[in-house]
Write a protein that binds this DNA or RNA. Structure first.
Lengths: 335, 335
DNA sequence: ACTGTGACTGTAAACGCTTGCAGACTGCGT
DNA sequence: ACGCAGTCTGCAAGCGTTTACAGTCACAGT
């Protein structure tokens, strides 16, 4: 099963066999055919590790995400996987479980055996990122750092639209439920604050919460205590958690409180009321990231470009509606 | 950054450096320390491809799943990732998007650069699986084939429990919404049929449907046309799709129709009514699969064991309730 | 006839690490 | 004093490819 056997059987040198697999046009038709049949008869396939060693590239890409089972990460990963395979690369995946130390360790480990690395919402410190970037080409999703290419989603405007939407519905008090610290949260928060102050809305903030359903459930009671008529949640999962808990406490959405999420995951369409949410083109981001990364891999210059920005948009569904006259409180809740 | 530089700086041979990293106890303390400091000063880390080539093992595992972004796959993948990393392996992930050809191609591609491969609900033909098993150790999830180790979930009983549950609630006509063909669907179907005939229930079947929300939405109308009072869906996503569409048509769940799902994904708790579903221990399955696989990797004998079976259980929530006297039909639907 | 050109092919030196084997040394028992 | 076992270490031959370089050959141009 080694190249030598094939060479022997085809009556050529190993170099020729190698060329048949790496630059077929450089070898005479007749020879190529002989080699191919020999290879097939022996079920030969080039050994990736040997090839990687000799060429200095692995034809592998890596992605590290905060949480493999999170819907947003999963969609990104899926798109990345597709695009990577399409380009002839296999994909390593590592989840950090939101733990900075694991994230860095995973990234470093992968860095050695990939041609490029994709970091989704990395939480590690700047210098760790720069150190990584020295080892292998990297591109980031949802993080901004000078000198490292990234694809970002421009949430600022869409977040503003969400707030405007609430304002237009008569809401005047609104709370933002923060997610894990990081770029993604910052940009939402900035958009939220600016829009609120521009519109003269009373804005408050709670959190940070883990980007999960249960955290949203917990958040709901804090929301009620905060006397607001509207909630902007870090992501759909938190938003759905809030809605669920509010329903359990007899608070109607959107009758009593309006709720907005982020991401527009599949979930948003599945729950009732269907979730008003800011759509983030996750799949597109994944695809774009791979393209950017491969540009980098193939020639080290692409990093100079400014980060690629994708735009988000508010998707209005049924979890937002006209504000009640007075904000509901725990007292409204059914027993 | 190669082993030679480190060896030179530490004043030892490359063999010693290598040993420091692979069998530290075989090298004298003093020497080991010298090597370690030299390595650190040079930021040295062993080159994985070179090591893989020399040792014949990569310390990589691979998993191929039908759909990376599917919640069930994602949970399995997450568990596998955790466990693999814990054991010192990195993980390749490939999604087949449910197309057999891609599945096989991905699997073959990965097979060459991993020490072992995990196939989740593989759809490729038996002989393709056996061919793969010849290339590298593999273990399957949700598929049974003589000679290939697998971890399965014993859904037969739990499916029976689901049907019994419906029967006890007074349901006499029930439809099963089939998922994609394969082991997973077969075992549900078998459990469903047997339980229905045992209990004397009128059983029908629809499908197959893709294992997705939208397919469930589509299925709902077929369900209504089928005049049943209860539905057992292939998975939670389909179930939720059904519930949603029924709600849109003014049919209450569980007031008019009861719905049971499979998997107990996070989704089941997030929707309303909360979904009655058969819990499949996805994370546990992933972990178990990795352990089985690593047994295989470390000594080729573990394959002889019979498949490891995990047990599933019915989780009763709010999407099932007492049967109406007569099954609802499209006529009941609100305009 | 001779040279230059192009198209193929082969030779052999990497790529960076692992490991069987053997040598060097130490300390011990006799 | 000698041999033996045990502990470390180094030598060097791989592991399976790739690729720079050089060689061969056919053919066209002069």
């Amino acid at each position: 099963m080694s190249i030598r056997k094939v060479a022997a059987r085809a009556g050529v040198s190993t170099a020729t066999v190698s060329r048949v697999f790496t630059q077929p046009q450089a070898v005479a038709d007749e020879t190529r055919r002989r080699v191919m049949t020999a290879a097939e008869e022996l079920h030969y396939a080039p050994h990736p590790a040997a090839s990687a060693l000799a060429r200095g590239r692995t034809c592998n890409l890596g992605i590290v995400v905060p949480d493999v089972s999170n819907s947003f990460s999963a969609v990104v990963t899926k798109a990345v996987d597709r695009q990577a395979r399409r380009e002839g690369y296999a994909l390593f995946v590592a989840g950090s479980d939101e733990v900075v130390h694991d994230e860095e360790a995973s990234a470093r480990a992968l860095a050695q055996q990939v041609d490029g690395l994709l970091l989704v919402s990395p939480r590690m410190p700047d210098d760790a990122l720069l150190a990584l970037a020295d080892m292998t080409p990297i591109v980031m999703l949802n993080r901004l750092l000078d000198g490292i290419p990234a694809v970002l989603t421009n949430l600022y405007e869409a977040t503003g639209h969400a707030v405007e939407h609430l304002h237009a519905l008569g809401h005047r008090t609104v709370v933002y439920l923060a997610g894990p610290d990081g770029y993604a949260n910052d940009v939402r928060l900035r958009g939220f604050r600016d829009a609120c102050s521009r519109l003269g809305m009373e804005a408050s903030e709670l959190g940070p919460f883990a980007a999960r359903f249960q955290a949203g459930v917990r958040a709901a009671d804090l929301v009620l205590a905060a006397s607001v008529t509207a909630v902007v949640a870090y992501n759909d999962e938190i938003a759905v958690g809030v809605v669920n808990r509010l329903a359990d406490r007899g608070i109607g959405v959107p009758a009593d409180i309006s709720v907005v999420g982020f991401d527009d995951t599949e979930l948003a369409e599945m729950v009732s009321p269907r979730l008003t949410t800011v759509r983030i083109p996750a799949a597109m981001a994944g695809t774009a990231a791979v393209e950017l990364l491969l540009d980098l891999v193939r020639s080290r210059d692409a990093g100079l470009r400014s980060p690629r920005e994708l735009s988000a948009e508010l998707v209005v569904r049924s979890s937002t509606g006209p504000a009640r006259v007075a904000p509901p409180t725990g007292q409204d809740a059914a027993p």
